[in-house]
């Protein structure tokens, strides 16, 4: 894994001067009595990887679900920097617009591949479905783009017509990834993408993610409870606890010099 940091040239330093690609303001969400997310702001800049760390129940997955427009908060706004959507709070979109926006501009990789894949359909078909929803009706084009996308996620091409249920966990994650990046999304959401994989496969999948990120400068939001994963991937880190952001900053800063008590515990527990 050490080699990958040298093979591909790093992009220009990603300064926070650009227009944010994703911005959420004042997000609050509760489930009955439980306040899952309390007044959270998220900003992600183009080409950057934002890591969100926190223990179970800290609200990180709920936040990601809202970024994927699967859920609506009680309060808050959500903007993506897209040519036609810049002014709109995405939470005000109707069901149909949400679905189209999700299909075209948001990619997601779930921890559980059953959520993201049609297990009974072929792997290439799973990728093609994304393109079909976006309106592509050309068989040859669907076929070649599905293949390209699977190739980009380093999926073995001789198995592109195998069903995900016949594949290993790591492969299933690669199919999910291929599906997510098939339409070059504005933002790629990763919900514990490598949890549940063994360490060597985890390293390979992270390797692919890293390479993709560097080649295509995809904007990513990575949710994980695994600090190792966050440290490998993220440029910036947000630490969440009990629905609030307790600390955020550059990855090195968070890991080397954690300020908040909880972050300190977290970092030291890991190291």
């Amino acid at each position: 894994m050490a080699a990958l940091f040298n093979t591909v040239p790093r992009h220009e330093p990603r300064l926070m001067l650009a227009e944010p690609m994703l911005s959420m303001r004042g997000i609050s969400k509760s489930f009955g009595e439980v306040k899952a997310v309390i007044d959270v702001d998220v900003t992600v800049y183009p080409g950057e990887v934002l890591g969100i760390v926190g223990e179970s129940g800290s609200g990180k997955s709920t936040l990601l679900r809202m970024m994927n427009l699967e859920d609506t908060p009680e309060a808050g706004s959500y903007h993506l920097s897209l040519p036609d959507q810049e002014e709109r709070n995405l939470f005000t979109l109707d069901r149909f617009e949400r679905r189209m926006l999700r299909a075209r501009h948001i990619g997601i990789v779930y921890q559980n591949p059953h959520l993201g894949l049609l297990m009974g359909h072929t792997s290439s078909g799973n990728v093609a479905e994304r393109l079909l929803i976006a309106g592509n009706r050309n068989f040859a084009d669907l076929r070649s783009r599905a293949r390209e996308s699977l190739q980009a996620s380093e999926f073995p091409l001789e198995r592109i017509d195998a069903r995900p249920r016949e594949l290993s966990g790591g492969m299933q994650q690669r199919v999910q990834l291929a599906k997510a990046i098939a339409l070059e999304p504005a933002v790629l959401l990763l919900d514990e993408p490598t949890t549940g994989l063994d360490v060597s496969v985890q390293a390979l999948v992270l390797d692919t993610l890293k390479r993709l990120q560097q080649e295509r400068a995809i904007t990513m939001v990575l949710v994980s409870h695994d600090l190792g994963v966050i440290r490998t991937m993220a440029d910036r880190v947000m630490v969440m606890r009990r629905g609030r952001v307790v600390e955020q900053g550059l990855a090195d800063q968070i890991f080397q010099d954690p300020q908040h008590e909880y972050t300190q515990q977290l970092v030291h527990a890991k190291l």
Partner: peptide
Amino acid sequence: VQPDMSIAREMHGDADYGQLWLVLYEQLV
């Protein structure tokens, strides 16, 4: 493609027919 009838009705409501094309895609493959 969708054994659950209530979800199928939602899919009709959304005009979410991608999976029907997917079935044809896989027949072609």
